[in-house]
């Protein structure tokens, strides 16, 4: 059986790998809305990273702002830029 410290270490490695993959996808994806969604998922994983590193204040703030409000602002901008003056 794994004890608590080992579970945390495995969790850290999994989060680290997923975060790097999501950041790569967010930068290199062709579709803008997919890039925004990858950024939101990256932000949500970073919340788990903050909790693992014993920073609950930062985790609450990042969960509300980083993956909620910022994503909605990106989506509204994409909706607003799709209609006016389409080439």
């Amino acid at each position: 059986m794994l004890d608590n410290i080992e579970v945390l270490q495995v969790l850290e490695i999994v989060i680290a790998v997923f975060m790097v993959v999501l950041a790569f996808l967010a930068i290199n994806s062709k579709s803008l809305i997919k890039a925004v969604m990858f950024l939101s998922a990256l932000s949500m994983l970073s919340v788990i990273g903050f909790v693992v590193m014993q920073a609950p204040d930062v985790a609450v703030t990042e969960a509300v702002i980083g993956s909620g409000l910022v994503t909605s602002l990106f989506v509204f901008t994409l909706l607003a830029t799709k209609k006016v003056g389409v080439k």
């Binding site: 950041a23 803008l32 903050f50 590193m53 920073a55 930062v58 980083g66 990106f74």
Partner: peptide, 25 residues
Amino acid sequence: NVIKIIISLNILEIGLNLFIISVGY
């Protein structure tokens, strides 16, 4: 692309925040 530049800036910010927190942990 302007939106992609702002997304990159956000990724930079998340990385920087994680790094600063990891200094104190």
